[in-house]
Amino acid sequence: MKLYAVFVYLFLYIPVGVIALFSFNAGRHASQLQGFSPKWYGKALSNPFVMDALETSLIVAFVSAFLASLFGTMAAVALQGIKGPLRKTFDLLIYVAVMIPGIVIGIATLIGLVTVFDLLNPLLAALWPDGATPPSLHMGMGSLIAAHAMFLMALVIIIVRARLAGMDRSLTEASSDLYATPFGTFRQVTLPLIFPAVLAGFLLCFTFSFDDFIIAFFVAGSETTLPIYVFSSIRRGVTPEINAIGTMVLAVSLVTLAMAQILLRRGGRTPK
């Protein structure tokens, strides 16, 4: 039994371990170890394409995670006090957002937005004053952020709702009995209690967006995110540089995850 468990853990960690090991390979060949050197990290970090993609990925992940955490938390708080058709509608929307495969979301966003843009662009051009160049809507960082924020919002609503459901109702009741305004209660009682969950949700959203390939592949337009860059490089062949980038991508997720886990633990320990 124990041996079996060890075997499964080896299965889970050897492949990524091998990638990390070979990323320090001094040689030029991807699969022959020839001494250790961090030179491929230097090479990856001085590659302008990699740095551009990394920058795009970081901006998209940060902004979409921020929007999702803000609007998702607002929605979760409101849904707490609602019953009836509105609540059912939101439950259904969240279910659909989570159930529909990412690839279908990606495709739908692509053709949906392109269709809307094709309708809006002539309209904008007609409305624009003569002489000035009218703005032209197109797929790019904006559409990517909007698409990520959509499914991340569903995720945040689920996480924050779970935290709200686990909260002791008597705390908010006591607060309003002591004549706190609803906003006062929210700011001084509810928010401090759910804040760790919100922050953890933000961090999870960040990794989700940072690691997402399939939605970005469809809606990024001419932008390149890090996963898109890695995917197209893999098609051209395995190189030590991809190993270095891959190791860094894994490291980013691991650090973010560790922070989220610590926050959730701390959040779970607040008095109930």
């Binding site: 803000l70 607002m74 929605a75 929307l93 979301i105 739908a108 937005l113 909007a146 609803p182």
Partner: peptide, 28 residues
């Protein structure tokens, strides 16, 4: 009122789901 406050809180997420989820899926 309670009701309007909740509607205002739900508005951004609701709009987002409408434009980025329901509209694209309808187009498909």
């Amino acid at each position: 009122t309670h009701g309007t406050r909740n509607l205002l809180l739900l508005a951004p997420a609701g709009t987002w789901f409408l434009v980025m989820l329901l509209l694209p899926l309808t187009v498909v």
